[in-house]
């Protein structure tokens, strides 16, 4: 569950202010956030994930009050409880597909890399039909395949919350539908809450609920 109360956030040296009086997203809910560019969609995701902290108000994610945690606790919370899918995938081009999926385990001592994790990574890759490309360098993959690698990376630590920032922004229509299906199916299968930012009304309609940034503020 995500609960936001009296949130106020402003960037330094910017006039932009994000204000959310109250917001609740239930466990396992699949929510799309829509709104014009610059309305604060990505900022809101960062606040949910504990990447940024609010100037006022509280953000409670998966029973943890993220907004009042110290940095190290927020990092541990993020790597263990939150799966992030970025618009431009943000894969490391010097790693293979398999190593990209395992990336969170290389970066944080809060996660322990063992054979069970490797088996699960292969299983996820099979689910999204990239199992035959695990040894390949990610630079040699298509856009759709790269997005599927990013999805596997986000889901591997069994997060309770999956946050996707414009997950279909760089995809052609056929890949777009495929990726949305994967996101919705896999988040549900993993028992995770899914929040996705999108500009695409067609994509937003596939979610349980659509939040408009204009209405939130």
């Amino acid at each position: 569950m995500i609960r936001v109360q009296g949130l106020e956030f402003r960037y330094q040296r910017s006039d932009f202010v994000l204000r959310v009086a109250e917001l609740e997203i239930a466990d396992h809910e699949r929510v799309a956030i829509v709104g014009p560019s610059g309305s604060g969609k990505t900022t809101l995701l960062n606040l949910f994930a504990g990447i940024s902290t609010p100037d006022r108000g509280t953000v409670q994610t998966a029973a943890e009050r993220v907004s009042s945690m110290p940095d190290s606790a927020r990092r541990r919370f993020r790597v263990q409880q939150v799966g992030l899918v970025f618009q431009e995938f943000e894969l490391l081009d010097y790693l293979s597909v398999f190593d990209n999926i395992l990336l969170p385990y290389f970066l944080s001592s809060a996660l322990r890399l063992d054979d069970a994790v490797r088996t699960r990574a292969r299983s996820l890759a099979t689910d999204v039909e990239i199992a035959d490309k695990l040894a390949r360098n990610v630079a040699k993959l298509s856009q759709g395949e790269r997005q599927r690698v990013a999805l596997c990376r986000a889901l591997l630590p069994r997060p309770r919350l999956v946050l996707a920032d414009e997950p279909t922004g760089n995809l052609d229509p056929s890949n777009k539908h495929r990726v949305v299906d994967l996101l919705l199916e896999n988040a549900q299968a993993a028992g995770a809450t899914l929040v996705a930012v999108t500009h695409d009304a067609e994509v937003a309609e596939r979610f349980d609920r659509v939040l408009d940034m204009a209405a939130l503020q």
Partner: peptide, 16 residues
């Protein structure tokens, strides 16, 4: 910078 920022977002500490 962008790659390192992604690592930070995923959960890597500054020390890592």
């Amino acid at each position: 910078q962008r790659e390192l920022m992604t690592m930070t977002k995923i959960g890597a500490s500054p020390a890592s």
